[in-house]
Design a protein around this nucleic acid. Sequence first.
DNA 1: ATGGCTTATTGTATAAGA
Length: 255
Amino acid sequence: MKIVTWNVNSLNVRLPHVLDWLATNKPDALCLQETKQEDNKFPYEALKEAGYNAIHSGQKTYNGVAIISPHTLDDLHMGIPNFADEQKRLIAATINGVRIVCVYIPNGQAVGSDKYAYKLSWLQAFTPWLRKEISEHSKLALLGDYNIAPEDIDCHDPAAWVGQVLVSEPERDAFKALINLGLEDSFRLFEKSEGQFSWWDYRMAGFRRNLGMRIDHILITPEISKLSTTSYIDKTPRKLERPSDHTPVVLEFNN
DNA sequence: ATGGCTTATTGTATAAGA
């Protein structure tokens, strides 16, 4: 089974890239973030013609998450229960017995800002819900744009970023709290080196100079970990005309 | 030098991303 996370930064703009990527890579589950469109604009038809089912939870301008799969999507879930939130950041479904949870964790803007407080409170509410999901699904994968670089090697210049948003201690503690639910950072099961990033700023020729961050992740339960065969970041779409600033992160396992 | 680019908005400058 091949599962993928990709923040597309507007599906309206990026649909051609997504369709090309699907045709070439044939994933079993593709999780998207920042679709930036309401559900009635979501391209269900174009995906169906390409052989894919999809579920979407979106809104105008901001946020929006989707799961795309050639298989049946069961037991759909959207949003964090008992957490009042207008922002569309969580969607989940079961595919071939694997619980697929797709998240767009808040960016946080700047340490100390209202958006930063929202990010931490979102994670505070999300984590116990995920604990319950894990207790009900031994095969679970949490895919998405976490907006957290968990270790210094996941940042192109850790010295310059000390204490900043995406790497601050409370954010990394929240990431560790997810790990402490029994999850593993699947990419690091296979790739230990530095300089491995999933996002590069559009400015400053960030991609060409590899000034990036690894903030898109696939955390998995041990039941998936022991079946995993490879994980990699596919930089191909980042090299296209008008790319998203993020690029797909892939995990493959025997299921 | 705290910018640089890209997206969306009943736009023509602003907000947000990370």
